[in-house]
Write a protein that binds this DNA or RNA. Structure first.
Lengths: 338, 338
DNA sequence: GTGAAAGCGCTAACAG
DNA sequence: CTGTTAGCGCTTTCAC
């Protein structure tokens, strides 16, 4: 029962392997009747073509990979959901790899994937600290279709799916200011990620357009480590130059902030107004409810996967410069009330 | 540069392919000096063995699969994180498949994976509605190592990683009662999942041990659809026989409940006390902060993967009856204050 | 310690 | 419409 192969099938049918192969591939050069016979016997024996053999022969397969920094983050979880949605529909198998924000890990992963395991790659970058040479190199070595989403290497010529970070951060910051903030700060990642840079640009532009002065210490580099983050924020809120508004660019950051404010009895929104960039379903249930800029994560995943599969199946050419921009959504809640 | 293979390597080295193969595999029958030469040239050319060829030849590979109902759920996201933690360390590639609670999808997936793509499987089941024949069948057909976690098929003889659902639900329910609840209810999944059954058992036992009467309508079957769920809960809280305590067995359920209570102005914890089974980082920040039973999800994933890889690498035999039980953690917060 | 040869299961020319 | 043949790139006897 286990491991019946085409040769045995062919033998039992009194046909040649190649005929069987073509029949199973629904080739036009095979008669309907043989196709039927072949398919029936294949089903009877629960025959499944060996993907290694066929991939080896065809020099490609229906496997792709996702490389993301983290899965315990609603944004990425939703994106994976979106990706899986389309790969499943098209019968692709999807590998998942997590970099945990480690550049080393990301490089090692790409190098590993040069072995030809996959036919395409969806990536959200872990860091821009040392440039994106490894992606370029991967591409040179493999010529594999790659699509980036959200955290994209801005300087590289690859198809990308992003959301309108500049505009939405501009709008959010404007709301912060409108609600009375004179000295809002921006909780930023430590790495020079394009996504984050765009948001900072939006933040700055909103300040300047409201006639407020921007200073470097308005950008607070946060850590992905919750404990470290907590201490750093605590220090800031204990200092005399306490901020009166916060834009938290990452899901985790707003959570840390809420904890700090709770413990220090800093009142949100009276003492400090907050907007968080995230996709937490619980945002509306926090105390106070958290105003959010949420990204269309599921759809970003879907778009990225759709694009990738098109490239793999060559239904589209030279997608290399495609940039798909989706819209973020601003939801004002209690944390921003004047 | 792209696609150099062993034959070319061998040619350039003036060696035979088999020698090169053995050298790269660090075989004892190859001299240290040739090994060195081979490895150096391989590195120089960035040679990567073709996994399809080697998998085909060896009839197995270093790929495994995860099948889970959902990734947009902190429990599963954390479990995947735990799994990836160990597969990464051992250089396994990990496929991810989502069933979205669909039995059909689950069956189709298993059937697909009978093609031999993977060497092992980690599963959290989507439903027990029609038994677990498909898992048994998959095993008969493939003899592949399989490990179940959390949502496990209780009647099947496979290794499992679970947490102490009975005990922790018992304890949680006891706390609900101790806080004054006379008529607590249990928000349950619709499917007869083992996990859930265990929790219900714990719930019932706690009632009976406190001398309270159990009635069938204390078990409320919730939907995974948030909207549907919302309406159903709303109805319950508008009825005259309003519950005074809730144990929410799934992450989403507590969220829906909070929304309903907020909208209906039912006060938590005064009017109804709540404990939720989940791993939300925001539980402490909800209003009121949510008491939780949290599962050791990351570790469950780790244990499951560790066990699976051991089975694959035959370092352990007949693990078929292994059941690893980890402990859940009860955290009391405002939602339960008397 | 090294090499020759067979073949994993499949696909794709090419012939007929 | 069907069959023959030649590999895909690697591992593994078995000789030497």
């Amino acid at each position: 029962m286990k491991g019946i192969n085409m040769i045995q099938l062919a033998k039992e049918l009194g046909l040649s392997v190649s005929t069987v192969s073509k029949a199973l591939g629904d080739s036009h050069e095979i008669s309907a009747s043989t196709k039927k016979r072949v398919n029936e016997l294949a089903k009877k024996y629960n025959y499944k073509p060996n993907p290694f053999a066929s991939n080896l022969r065809k020099k490609k397969g229906k496997q792709i990979a996702i490389i993301i920094p983290d899965i315990v983050n609603n944004f990425f979880a939703l994106a994976v959901d979106g990706i899986e949605h389309v790969t499943m529909a098209k019968n692709y198998d999807t590998f998942i790899y997590l970099t945990h924000e480690s550049l080393e890990r990301e490089k090692a992963l790409l190098e590993h994937l040069e072995n030809g395991l996959i036919s395409g790659l969806i990536i959200s970058v872990s860091s821009g600290r040392e440039g994106y040479g490894h992606f370029q190199e991967f591409y040179e070595n493999t010529k594999l279709p790659m699509v980036f989403f959200d955290r994209v290497p801005d300087l590289l010529q690859f198809p990308k799916v992003i959301s309108n970070n500049y505009e939405s951060t501009f709008d959010a910051t404007a709301r912060l200011i409108k609600a009375g903030c004179k000295r809002p700060i921006f909780f930023s990642t430590q790495e020079p990620l394009f996504t984050n840079m765009e948001r900072i640009r939006g933040f700055q532009a909103a300040l300047s357009s409201a006639g407020l002065l921007f200073s470097e210490d308005m950008i607070v580099k946060c850590s992905y480590d919750m404990d470290q983050n907590y201490s750093a924020l605590r220090k800031i809120f204990l200092s005399k130059k306490r901020p009166d508004g916060v834009f938290a660019s990452i899901e985790k950051f707003a959570i840390s902030l809420y904890q700090v404010c709770k413990d220090l009895e800093v009142n949100i929104p009276r003492d400090v107004k907050v907007i968080g960039m995230n996709n937490l379903r619980t945002a509306a249930l926090l105390s106070p409810s958290l105003s959010t800029v949420s990204q269309p994560s599921f759809n970003m995943g879907k778009e990225a996967a759709t694009l990738l599969l098109k490239m793999i199946e060559k239904k589209t050419y030279a997608a290399a410069n495609d940039i798909i921009v989706l819209k973020n959504e601003l939801t004002i809640r209690e944390s921003l009330h004047a």
